[in-house]
Design a binder for these strands. Structure first.
Lengths: 206, 206
DNA sequence: GTCTATAAATCGATAGAC
DNA sequence: GTCTATCGATTTATAGAC
């Protein structure tokens, strides 16, 4: 029993080593460069050995994705303490953009890479309100619901639609900046400011 | 001379055949499945033959990208005839989203795939005001400039920053929908409507 | 449990016959 | 100009020695 527990722990440790190495590779060379051989070399094991701990290369990438989502939620959640819903949304946007720009390869892996297991990951989260993805979205939904209850919403759109809309918009800033560093000449933070200013106060004279 | 002209024409025709086949492959199986062998099989030639017309696989993907950008501009430009700048921006958004959703693999190739030659493509366009990318962006910049001249802009942000901001936001809707078809539960068109409504009229009570 | 060795499948690109 | 044949490099994943 005792021995088995130790074995379990060692197994978990090995998996962590693999994931840490994998994360470093994705970070430095991108998802395309994530191969079993590279991981094996990084942790100084034979390629075949990894298969005793992970079913396949996809399983490693998938776990990396899962962790990335958790990291995103962790980066967002401190904003929840802001009382004013409008300011909270603004801060959530800032934190989201910072996370994306500072962890661009992880962000790419989660949100832009392979639609197949990106969807598989989401499928897994969609029905679980405690999943990091749903909790992250929930932060936005809550803010808009509160704004509505306070009578401060001027638009007649459901809070969850508003949440998805602003998520998509902010995602666009990050996604475009990550792919084309020269295209939006304007830097990400400034684009976000323009977006939230316009969204909150309106762009055109009424 | 005459013979040479015919040869030129035949050469151009072969290139078109290759690109058409390549486009079909990207459309059906994604960019990752674009291989010389698959293209050769589709046009019923030996793999090596293609190298007489294209320098490399990358050159084919690059040309596909270039054409995609032109197609995007062609899809957007009819909106330019709309007199009211605000309505024009709205229509540009609708056309952009339609193009992205209906040509998702092309869109992915241009805007989401490999940052390296996505950037190379943009580098090529950035200094050429007549490139489809710059002309597309120009449609938005012009609309915001006119709105400003008409005194209808309520926000003190430069038109080109506004143009990039709305491009990025709409890109986010398309990009997210393409990758996670289930995540924004709201469909793309409705997200766009929410975005433009909020952007134009403001989201919160002032 | 870890290794070496290798199978099996790709790929891009090229050489040389016709 | 096109083809066949192949090089050379990759990859994932597995088999079997130790």
């Amino acid at each position: 029993m005792v021995k088995q527990a130790r074995r379990e722990r060692e197994k978990a440790e090995f998996r962590e080593e693999v994931l840490t190495a994998a994360r470093a590779i994705v970070l430095e060379e991108g998802y395309g460069a994530l191969t079993m051989r590279k991981i094996a070399e990084a942790i100084d094991y034979a390629p075949g050995t990894i298969y005793l701990y992970f079913e396949s290369r996809d399983a490693i990438a998938f776990e990396l994705c899962r962790r990335g989502f958790e990291a995103l939620y962790d980066a967002l959640v401190p904003a929840a303490s802001i009382a004013d819903p409008q300011e909270r949304v603004r801060e959530l946007g800032r934190r989201y953009v910072s996370f994306g720009m500072e962890n661009s390869e992880t962000y790419r892996l989660i949100f832009m890479e392979d639609p197949d297991y990106a969807s598989a990951l989401f499928e897994e989260q969609a029905d679980d309100p405690q999943s990091p993805g749903m909790k992250s979205l929930g932060l936005l939904v809550t803010a808009f619901s509160q704004a509505r209850q306070l009578g401060r919403l001027t638009i007649d759109v459901a809070p969850d639609v508003l949440a998805e809309m602003i998520w998509a918009s902010v995602h666009g800033i990050v996604a475009l900046k990550i792919t084309y560093d020269r295209f939006p000449r304007t830097q990400a933070g400034e684009l976000l400011t323009a977006l939230t200013d316009a969204l909150f106060d309106g762009l055109f004279a009424r």
